[in-house]
Design a protein around this nucleic acid. Sequence first.
DNA 1: CGCGAATTCAACAAAAATCAACAATACTAT
DNA 2: ATAGTATTGTTGATTTTTGTTGAATTCGCG
Lengths: 251, 251
Amino acid sequence: MSKYETTLLQTVDMRGTVSVQELSRILGVSDQTIRRVSRPLVDRGALQKVHGALVSTKSAPDLPYLARMNLNREAKVAIAEEVVKIIKDGDSIAIDTGSTSGFVAQALRSLRELTVVTNSAYVASTLAMIPGNNVSMAGTQLRDHDGASFDRSAFDVIDRMQVDYVLLSASLVDARNGFLVHEQCEVDIASAMLANAGRAIMAVDHSKFEPQVRKPVLRQPTLKPGDYLVTDRVPPDEFSTLFANLEVRVA
Amino acid sequence: MSKYETTLLQTVDMRGTVSVQELSRILGVSDQTIRRVSRPLVDRGALQKVHGALVSTKSAPDLPYLARMNLNREAKVAIAEEVVKIIKDGDSIAIDTGSTSGFVAQALRSLRELTVVTNSAYVASTLAMIPGNNVSMAGTQLRDHDGASFDRSAFDVIDRMQVDYVLLSASLVDARNGFLVHEQCEVDIASAMLANAGRAIMAVDHSKFEPQVRKPVLRQPTLKPGDYLVTDRVPPDEFSTLFANLEVRVA
DNA sequence: CGCGAATTCAACAAAAATCAACAATACTAT
DNA sequence: ATAGTATTGTTGATTTTTGTTGAATTCGCG
């Protein structure tokens, strides 16, 4: 029996199916080791093996995250990995709600001793399980489609913290108007997080550069020079002025 | 018997698996001593040894949340389904933390228009995603092994609500002393939920009727006549007086 | 069907952990 | 106080585990 067995089983059973590469990052070992320690597990039937990944034999707990999580999945995973390169063990970060945030939370499981504040119950529960992390859930009543909170107490919690980074997202990036979202409450939370954080990380996949069916109209707070913009494709030229002061990273 | 035994057992049982190096740092002795001291413990079956680390034997009560979720999985799934039969669409329920609660949350996804209050981020995020549900997360700072909160604000939230049911759990059922758990804060939350709820549902799988390695000593608040006890096997006779006034359901 | 990319496997070298024996230290009983 | 006993740290040989390399296999896609 290997010392990684329990963590490995935990992670796979929780997510249903997870790639060997990702497991190696989460456990901090090589992919070859993942294969080695997982072999006895699949022999004994505790796990199932497919090409490139391990899948749980238990009825895969169909974790909520709806259709949006699977929209542009590869893009969001890539962005999440790029975001994790910015963060180091021991850093503190505020994370807003949004589908990309969910992937970032998953990817952040490979770091240690993180201090996290978030208004998303999904992000909170994902990162709270990691031993050594210090996670605070901001807010009480949860919005039903994504499990995020925007009530008064959320702001109280956010305003109490001072963090190194804040992870933000947007529904649409407009060359003229910047980063747009649909709801005022999302802007409010973003502003509060931004006010209490060092550098901001704006994560938007390439689909956010194209026109949306339902056009968002509310502007996210403007970013500071030096804040990060992480995306999965080189943005079209028309955005160059908007991103002029930002550190742009393409996954 | 060595003076380190109890600390060693506690630490390993708490964390599920901990490396020899880390133990030597924690106890302030050499790694060789850890090996020496742990040998009789693994001989007597109180601990398990792997290369580089000690892991708690499987009946250990405080394994990380997701590891515990895979312990007696079938039993807990069955119990969860039985619990769901009690609840109807539109009901309100308070849910405490614990591995069984996680399964109940999964099973409750088949109901609609639920009002839920819980101090577990996992339960909260699981149920908040269902359209029509109204979920409140009680508490802010999350305990790292199971993502549950026990801070002041958790009680404020719970005390504001009046719900139809409360789902409780226990680490051990003792014929003389009733339902026992390890931590005072868990009792406090249970009491608060109980005070604001109609009928209680105590969910315990059969393993909770047998002696535990680390014996819990704190009594859960006593249940009212008519409260439910849901389990997966007919409890031994010695518990008949304890369960006399309860509605017992066996999955 | 065949090609390129990704994944897996086998084998070996490097690193880490274990064990046994011994030396140093603390503790006990007289 | 002192001899005897038990416990702990250290050292080096041995074993186990881990990362890396390169070959073989599988997968995806035209």
